[in-house]
Write a protein that binds this DNA or RNA. Structure first.
Length: 403
DNA sequence: CAATACGCAACTCGACATCC
DNA sequence: GGATGTCGAGTTGCGTATTG
């Protein structure tokens, strides 16, 4: 005791173990010096820890009523699980507030089995994903955000507050994703991959039926890729590094692409194929024609993929493991050429037109609640962006989404 | 004696006030 | 409006007591 203390530089993002032990963390990644020295598992919080978030040492975070949900905005850091470590062994239960636990309960009982609603795959959403969520807190945030959106979808009276709550969790899920993607390893590639899918679902849901102009004034840019195009690149990086590990693990079934490679667009089984094919006239021989042609062929394939499941008998889909029609949009978005996504971001008319036809294609799988309303939003936003000059080419997508 | 626990000084940073 | 200062809540990690 006595004397002056040694001056020191404070870190702001030390690892969970060093914080718990109240010792200096050098923040080396993937393992800090202290954790290496004492052979501890070194985990960094999956979300940004705002300077004003309550101390992780105090256990006062079980306080659902201290801040009305309606006052929670994306710029107001929500106390509670923002600093939960990514290891289940280190999650103090007091860091979850009662509302989060309620959302988790809803995920396990209801939302998880509503995503694809197929017996063979429900287990993955209901059990495997929460397990990954215990290891990677950003995945847990994603699960909670989808759960909140699902409640908002089911109960219009609770819509506004649940959408706000979902936005909070989504923002933390994104923060964690951004942090972890710089350190892809066998330990986190499952978490990163599954989080990308969940973030994607979130994006779809929020510009579908649950779109709320009071909360989100920039739906147009979001629908046209402001959110999901950068995410697409992230998924590509995760799969480049972790593909073998993911396919060898519990998420294997999410990566299985069945007969996609052999699938051929078939005008006979798709009566609307002519509407898709005809938009080639728009870019015929012009700049980027090859990119648009390739993207359009992928879209036709995506339609063939969805249609084959519509026509399958239940016993056939069970042979497949489950109906995979819901994966169609993901496959198209993921396989679309990078150049196409750039052209879409630039709002080139041909790219927008293809995207509107993709929107119309989504209409075929609107039985999934998370896609309900997306097709109309996409077509509306594209139509507004293109203007009346393109109405002739937008006729069919507009018709489809009004059905 | 090394590892762990934790009191509390030092520090950070947002909010607000004041001045230019 | 921007720059600067002050305040105080919250966070970090030094240094020491305790434990095995």
């Amino acid at each position: 005791m006595g004397g002056t203390r040694r001056a020191h530089q404070k870190s702001r993002a030390g690892c969970i173990e060093c914080k718990r032990r109240r010792i200096k963390c050098g923040e080396e990644k993937p393992r800090c010096h202290q954790c290496k020295k004492y052979d501890k598992s070194c985990e960094y919080a999956g979300s940004t820890l705002g300077p004003s978030t309550p101390s992780t040492r105090s256990s006062v975070q079980l306080h659902p009523d201290t801040e009305p949900l309606s006052q929670r905005t994306s710029t107001t850091p929500v106390p509670s699980i923002s600093s939960v470590p990514s290891s289940s062994a280190h999650i103090p239960s007091s860091l979850f507030d009662a509302q989060d636990l309620s959302l988790f309960h809803h995920w396990c009982l209801t939302t998880s089995i509503s995503i694809v609603n197929t017996r063979n795959l429900d287990h993955l959403w209901q059990t495997t994903l929460p397990k990954i969520g215990f290891r990677h807190i950003y995945v847990m945030h994603s699960l909670l955000s989808l759960s909140a959106l699902h409640i908002a979808y089911l109960d219009p009276f609770e819509k506004h507050s649940n959408i706000l709550n979902a936005a909070q969790h989504h923002s933390k899920a994104l923060d964690g994703f951004r942090q972890d993607i710089d350190y892809i390893s066998p330990e986190n590639c499952d978490g990163l991959f599954v989080n990308a899918i969940l973030i994607f679902l979130y994006t779809f849901i929020t510009f579908g039926k649950l779109y709320d102009p009071a909360i989100d004034s920039k739906v147009g840019p979001r629908i046209l890729g402001a959110d999901w195009i950068p995410l697409m690149r992230g998924v590509g990086i995760v799969l480049q590094v972790g593909y073998e590990h993911i396919t060898a693990g519990p998420l294997n079934s999410l990566l299985s692409i069945g007969n996609w490679m052999e699938l051929c667009p078939d005008p006979e089984s798709d009566p609307d194929d002519k509407h898709i094919v005809r938009i080639r006239e728009v870019w015929n021989q012009g700049d980027n024609a090859a990119v648009y042609d390739e993207t359009l062929e992928l879209l036709r394939k995506c339609r063939a993929w969805i249609i084959q499941f519509e026509k399958m008998h239940v016993e056939d889909t069970s042979e497949w493991g489950h109906s995979r029609s819901w994966t169609g949009p993901f496959l198209w978005l993921f396989l679309a050429p990078q150049r196409y996504l750039e052209l879409l971001a630039q709002r080139q008319p041909s790219a927008l037109l293809i995207f509107a036809h993709f929107g119309a294609t989504l209409h075929a799988i609107r039985q999934y609640w998370w896609i309900d309303g997306c097709s109309k939003s996409i077509v509306d936003v594209v139509s507004e962006s293109l203007g009346p000059y393109w109405d002739h080419w937008m006729e069919w997508p507009k018709q489809v989404v009004e059905r």
